[in-house]
Amino acid sequence: MSGRLQDKTALVTGSTSNIGKAIAEAFAAEGAHVVVSGRNRERGKHVVEGIRAAGGQADFVEADLDGSADASRRLADEAREALGGRLDVLVNNAGIYPPGTTTTTDEKTFDQVYAVNVKAPFFLTADVAPEMARNGGGVIVNLGSWIARLGVPVGSLYSSTKGAMETLTRAWSAEFGPQGVRVNAISPGVIVPRAAEGGEPHPGEIMMKGTPFGTIGTPDAIAHAAVWLASDESAFVHGTVVDVDGGRVGAAVIAA
């Protein structure tokens, strides 16, 4: 790696597995001191140990982002403490995706998904962004989703929360950009962890047929984009949603 985040500090929510884990590992490999956060302490410790074994800096902060402002503020405070008092980069990655259609979703599930996917990052950003501005600037990267812009028969609740995050990305860019805080988002396509050798094809592959890439992506693809957005290389990028989806929402390949 090239040290693109050397001496930076970062908090990645929901980083004990999958996309969040890959982002935390990539940030640390580029020189950042990373706070790994999530509800599962054992998985968090495992991620931290892996980063440290590779020569990176990382700490774990346990957090249950239930949507309350208190939970978000508590995570922000504990992350800053672990990072020596300064937070340069926030990645709002944590989210939940319960199965179900509009007609099978009850009110409790609706409230829970919006609490975790929208309220928690909203109040975390409300705490972190002003502090970043006072410290001279910072970067916020939100996670959207390809199904926020391409309707599918299931997932209406989840997709609406990701649409909200993409809208907040633009709003926060206008609100905090003039204060030195850049806000952008990544819209992942169908992403799954790397399969073991000889493993069965993932069911998500069917959703990538007819796309330029042709198959599912891995968490590393999102991590590479996150590193770029967090680094000074993207200093002229504000309020943008970067599609990292194998061409899923932007192009169609017609088979001969």
Rank of each mutant, 00 (worst) to 15 (best):
S2E: 12
D7G: 04
G14Q: 02
T16R: 05
S17Y: 07
N18L: 04
I19R: 04
K21T: 02
A22M: 11
A22K: 08
A22P: 03
I23E: 12
A26R: 15
F27W: 10
A28T: 14
A29F: 02
E30L: 10
A32D: 11
A32R: 10
S37C: 09
N40C: 00
N40A: 04
G44H: 09
K45Q: 15
H46L: 07
H46M: 06
H46I: 00
V47W: 14
V48N: 11
I51M: 04
I51E: 01
R52S: 01
A53H: 11
A54D: 14
Q57D: 11
F60M: 06
V61R: 14
A63D: 07
A63P: 08
A63W: 11
D64C: 02
D66W: 01
G67R: 06
S72F: 12
E78C: 00
A79L: 09
A79P: 09
A82T: 05
G85S: 06
R86Q: 15
V89M: 06
V89Q: 08
V89S: 04
V91R: 07
V91G: 10
V91W: 07
N92M: 13
Y97V: 05
P98I: 10
P98R: 12
P99N: 12
G100P: 03
T102V: 15
T105Y: 08
D106W: 09
D106F: 09
E107M: 15
F110G: 00
A115K: 01
V116L: 07
V116P: 05
N117M: 04
N117L: 04
V118Q: 06
V118A: 07
K119W: 01
P121Q: 10
F122P: 00
L124K: 05
L124F: 08
A126H: 14
A129E: 14
P130Y: 10
E131P: 00
E131L: 14
N135H: 15
V141L: 13
L143A: 09
S145C: 04
S145K: 02
G151F: 05
V152C: 01
S159L: 03
S160G: 08
M165I: 14
E166I: 11
L168Y: 15
T169F: 04
T169C: 08
W172C: 00
S173C: 12
F176T: 02
F176I: 01
V183P: 02
V183Y: 03
N184Y: 01
N184A: 12
N184P: 01
A185D: 05
A185E: 04
S187F: 04
P188M: 12
V190M: 10
I191W: 10
I191L: 11
P193E: 13
R194N: 02
E200H: 03
M207D: 13
M208N: 14
T211K: 09
F213Y: 15
T215C: 00
G217A: 08
T218V: 11
P219W: 03
P219I: 07
I222L: 10
A225S: 13
A225D: 08
L229S: 10
A230K: 07
S231E: 07
S231K: 08
D232G: 09
E233P: 01
S234K: 11
A235C: 00
V237M: 12
H238T: 11
G239E: 01
T240S: 13
T240P: 00
V241E: 06
D243C: 01
G246M: 11
A251N: 08
V253C: 04
A255Q: 02
A256N: 13
